[in-house]
Design a binder for these strands. Sequence first.
DNA 1: CTGAAAGCGCTTACAG
DNA 2: CTGAAAGCGCTTACAG
Lengths: 346, 346
Amino acid sequence: MNVTGHTSRPASIRDVATAAGVSYQTVSRVINNHPSVKHTTRERVQAAIDELGFRRNVTAHALASGRTRAVTVLTANTTHYGYASILQGIEEAARAASYAVGIGVLESADEAAVAAEVQRAADAGGGLVVIAYDPAGVAALGAVPAALPVVGVVETPATPPGGDRPWVWTDDRQAAYEATRHLLSLGHETVHYVAIPSSTRRTSAARTTGWRQALQEAGAPEPRPLQGSWGPAGGHAAGLELAKDPAVTAVLCGNDDLALGVLRALHESGRSVPGEVSVTGFDDAPHSAYLTPSLTTVRLDFTGLGRAAFALLHGVLEASAQIAPHPVSVPELVVRESAGPPPAKP
Amino acid sequence: MNVTGHTSRPASIRDVATAAGVSYQTVSRVINNHPSVKHTTRERVQAAIDELGFRRNVTAHALASGRTRAVTVLTANTTHYGYASILQGIEEAARAASYAVGIGVLESADEAAVAAEVQRAADAGGGLVVIAYDPAGVAALGAVPAALPVVGVVETPATPPGGDRPWVWTDDRQAAYEATRHLLSLGHETVHYVAIPSSTRRTSAARTTGWRQALQEAGAPEPRPLQGSWGPAGGHAAGLELAKDPAVTAVLCGNDDLALGVLRALHESGRSVPGEVSVTGFDDAPHSAYLTPSLTTVRLDFTGLGRAAFALLHGVLEASAQIAPHPVSVPELVVRESAGPPPAKP
DNA sequence: CTGAAAGCGCTTACAG
DNA sequence: CTGAAAGCGCTTACAG
């Protein structure tokens, strides 16, 4: 009880109606911006809303209307730069549209575990955005029931899907192609590749495809890609391998963390960068410009990708909303210190 | 309509009741594990639940029961390592307890903006976790209405709060103290400090306090702390300043990203690390072990902190849940390559 | 332009 | 141990 004798329960539309001297339907019309409300009535109701600090109960709204203004993001990871930035972009756009954003982490690609997480996300109501850069994400995207509004954030598809496919991506195949061409143009005979984990077992990942394409076009030998992980430890392990082979002069890495590990491994192996070996990354994480040597990499607009994913979902959920075109923005090669010409031949 | 003639609307407790030949209250009792249900009845109901793929409508449950199994995380950032790891810890613990997790980003510390975000989070129902490492987070924690269940993730408080204060923290004051002592024990006459943005304007941040305490105990001169930011750019700017002063031989940085920027600035200024200047970080981000030189830093258990925050909130929301003790885990100094003895005096 | 009724899918007392 | 009634706070037709 507060001093006025009311309980501290939040005001409902009935309380507002009583205070404004109207029925509660009229209050409902006002909060839903229904056109057919007399101007003076609307003002009276609005005054009562402000005075009582009324906020529509989102739970009751969801139950009665059958629609929840919410998006749940399903992702295998929240700490890697790309994933976290996509999440940030989604949240930013969702907030602007007054949508709640939920998050569910996919701890494994195991079928039952993925199904359970998708179910949990579906239970929340609203729409889904699935980050499908890895097996768990791809499995989740595939496990979403057809009736559920969902947008996938995916690698560059091998074949462009139909326009009705609610997918967004940055053209990372093209980006890998250009980064590889850059290294070849510097004079390297070929480019080795340290891959991020592939999203599927069947087809080659987009970055791998772009790298391979550039090599083939140049008629360069095509070394076996090294399987890395998402973090620097995997890059370090791969870098130690590569350092053993004196023929290696250029290494394309699937992301900046991998590149960081490769850089460290080359240093430990006594091979200078970029003097003896050139290294490039992928993503342009905030720290990459401050490494020594600073990292030549490809900048990807992850937050823009997240915003685009939400815009697309918003369009599916509400006919009024705009549908953003996809792919969103063109990746950009950022040339820094870690790549240069190969050492002169003896 | 599907082949059986039913609409594809999800099954409700009434559908389950019909299928099992009981009233829908009995179904409610079964899904809520109410003890007074005959064993055979329970089995019949459970069979119907499984067959129909029934899932309790969380919205209706929330509206009818008045309790939402959800936590909303309010944070100024989702991409920095510490923040993202705390979020991951919260999500992990929440998932294990079958709680939904929502996220709201605090884009500014502006009073109105913060109030709006807190309102949005409150609208979601359930409890709140506020990451209060910065002015926006501190403002949000202060703006949460008293009636709302909330746990704050905070810097080490200047004075330990009462046991009823639902706060969690790692002892970063102690950690800064120990890192500073480590540098002093190496023989440095004093230690300079590049600070993360302070959480409040009034009191000194916990890390600053720990650093200062170590200097005072050692009778070392107390240089003015340099104001950094959260990212490497701030560290770079501060590092350029410090590099100008030949008396600087040891730098404590408020986090690893700052340290990365300082490392780069010293490199650009031609000062070797750790030969001429020692540098230490804070957090032990995944890449810090792979920098060259690898970073001496303090490891903080952010995911553990997130899990503890959720456990505390869970205890507030459900009497049955355990309350975790706080602070959670002791920070640990990780000695690597970036810090060593000062250069010999000429 | 505004109001009275029914209902969203559950839970919470209250009966029996 | 099980069922019928009322209600959570809204929205959605349906009247007027």
